[in-house]
Write a protein that binds this DNA or RNA. Structure first.
Length: 264
DNA sequence: GCGACAG
DNA sequence: ATCTTGTCGC
C-alpha cells in the first residue's frame, strides 16, 4: 500500500472528519482553518501534478471522482484513477469540502504514484471562512494543494489584463468586482487569492492557496499547467474522466436492470 | 430581512 | 454540477 493510500484510509475512517449536520460542519471548518499553513512552492522542483474532480448525476443519486497525475515537464498523463459512489453530504455553497472530499480521497487512494502537488477545482483560502475544498483536502492529508476555481464565491477583485499570465489580487470581502484590487491589497487588505488569465481573451480562473503552497507558486503552477486551455490540464482531464466514468457506470446499471437474467 | 451562493 | 441544440469565431 502506498503512502498516500494509508493517509487516505486513515482520514476516511475517522468519523470526526465527517459530520452530517451543516451546523457541525461549519464549526469543524473553523477549527480546521487554523491548521492551514502557507509554504513556498518551488514549481521548478515539481514533477508530478494531480488534478482532481467529481461528476454528479442530475438526480443526485450517484457520482464519480477522478484523479489524473501529469508530468509537468512532458505534460503527459502518468496515471489516472476513478471511483464511483453516492453523495454523502448535500451541496451547500461554503461547505463544498464535506461533499467533495470523500470521493476525491477514494480516487487518490487508488494511485500508485505519489504526486508532488494537487490541483483541485474550487477554492482554498478564497472562502468566507478561509477554508475551501483545497484547504480541506490539504489539511486532511497534510499535503500541498492548490485551488483553481471557474467562478467567484467570495472576495473583491478587479479584472486582469487580456494577455495570458495577467492577474489581479482577490481581497477579503463580499464578492464584488472593483476598479483596482491592487490598490486595496497595497492598503493592507487580506489577500486571499488571484484572478489569473490563463488564456488570452478568455474568462480568467480564480487561484488560491489550499495548503502548504504559497500564492506565487500556486499562480505559477496553474499558469504552467494551462498552456492551451483556460482550465489547468490535470483538472480538465479529471473532469472529462469522471464524467465518462459516471456515464459508463450508469449504462452498466441500466443494462443490469433491463436484463439481469441475460437477454439472449 | 434580503440577496448571493465554488461544484 | 447536470441537461441540451445550435451557433459564432478562429
Amino acid at each position: 500500500m502506498s503512502e498516500i493510500s494509508e493517509r487516505v484510509a486513515r482520514v476516511l475512517d475517522d468519523p470526526e472528519h465527517w459530520p452530517d449536520d451543516p451546523k457541525e460542519a461549519v464549526a469543524l471548518q473553523r477549527r480546521m482553518a487554523d491548521r492551514v499553513r502557507e509554504e513556498p512552492l518551488d514549481v521548478d522542483s515539481v514533477r508530478l501534478v494531480a488534478g482532481l474532480d467529481v461528476s454528479y448525476a442530475k438526480d443526485n443519486t450517484a457520482l464519480s471522482a477522478a484523479a489524473v497525475v501529469m508530468d509537468i515537464r512532458t505534460m503527459e498523463v502518468v496515471e489516472s484513477a476513478t471511483i464511483s459512489s453516492e453523495p454523502s453530504f448535500p451541496y451547500i455553497s461554503g461547505l463544498f469540502g464535506f461533499r467533495e472530499s470523500p470521493p476525491v480521497l477514494e480516487a487518490l487512494g487508488r494511485l500508485k504514484v505519489t504526486p508532488d502537488v494537487y490541483l483541485c477545482d474550487g477554492f482554498g483560502l478564497a472562502h468566507p471562512r478561509r477554508f475551501g475544498v483545497a484547504c480541506h483536502l490539504g489539511v486532511l492529508l497534510d499535503l500541498p494543494v492548490v485551488g483553481s476555481a471557474k467562478s467567484v464565491l467570495y472576495g473583491k477583485h478587479s479584472v486582469p489584463g487580456n494577455e495570458r499570465g495577467s492577474w489581479t489580487p482577490m481581497v477579503a470581502g463580499r464578492s464584488e468586482v472593483v476598479p483596482d484590487s491592487r490598490a486595496l491589497a497595497e492598503r493592507g487588505s487580506e489577500v486571499i487569492g488571484r484572478v489569473l488569465r490563463t488564456r488570452e481573451g478568455v474568462k480568467p480562473v480564480y487561484v488560491s492557496v489550499g495548503h502548504r503552497v504559497d500564492l506565487e507558486g500556486a499562480t505559477e503552477l496553474v499558469l504552467r499547467m494551462s498552456p492551451k486551455y483556460r482550465v489547468p490540464e490535470p483538472v480538465r482531464h479529471a473532469d472529462r474522466l469522471c464524467g465518462e466514468h459516471r456515464k459508463a457506470v450508469l449504462a452498466e446499471k441500466e443494462a443490469r436492470e433491463a436484463g439481469p437474467a441475460g437477454d439472449r
